[in-house]
């Protein structure tokens, strides 16, 4: 990992890019063929984005680009310049805390080995930001691009539904809360 001062020139094979990840700006010298996934993991130490298939099938590498879930293994890092990238490390409200979605995953046992989990949580965040009241069908559709080899999905769907309900509840004025 090498974060640079702006004055040094990048090597011939490298390209200087600026990425905004979880609100922090990074200037990196990187081979342009480096995928966003490898860049996040190997250059920024954000290992919550998982490498599964590395060709766009499993969804384990999902991150949010401008709030939208995308596969980071299918993007080259320079293509992410100028976008706001959110990884699983960026969804918690504060150190040691969990987002409502993460909380719900714990409670409903929405994870086992955890390999698919960061991606599932991010997909859920993107879904709920767009649609606070998803139907079961919409939840299933949202996670349909993410493979989980452990849970059988039922608890993941349950987790997202629970998180949706809680977020809706929290956004309601106190006198209307249950």
């Amino acid at each position: 990992m090498h974060t640079l001062t702006r004055k040094e020139k990048p090597k011939e094979s490298h390209m200087r890019i600026e990425l905004t990840v979880n609100g922090a700006e990074h200037t990196l010298d990187i081979e342009p063929r480096t995928t966003l996934l490898d860049c996040l993991r190997d250059h920024l130490g954000l290992t919550g984005a998982h490498a599964g298939c590395e060709h766009g099938v499993c969804g384990a590498c999902t991150v949010l680009v401008d709030g939208v879930a995308v596969r980071s293994c299918l993007m080259f890092s320079p293509q992410a310049e100028g976008a706001a990238i959110t990884t699983i490390e960026g969804v918690t409200p504060g150190p040691g805390e969990l987002s409502p979605v993460q909380d719900a995953f714990c409670e409903t046992h929405g994870m086992q080995c955890g390999y698919c989990t960061p991606a599932m949580v991010l997909v859920a965040h993107a879904l709920l930001a767009d649609n606070p009241e998803p139907t079961r069908e919409q939840i299933v559709e949202a996670i349909s691009g993410n493979i989980c080899r452990c849970t059988g999905y039922a608890q993941i769907v349950e987790a997202i539904a629970l998180a949706a309900e809680r977020i809706r509840g929290a956004n309601r004025p106190p006198e209307l809360r249950k």
């Binding site: 060709h55 766009g56 293994c73």
Partner: peptide, 25 residues
């Protein structure tokens, strides 16, 4: 290269080995 949702998997599987990529997005 535009969205890269087909080309990048092909590259990952070494079915495509372009010398240069021109991003038009």
């Amino acid at each position: 290269i535009a969205g890269g949702q087909t080309l990048v998997p092909m590259m990952a599987m070494r079915l495509a080995r372009p010398t240069q990529l021109i991003d038009i997005t």
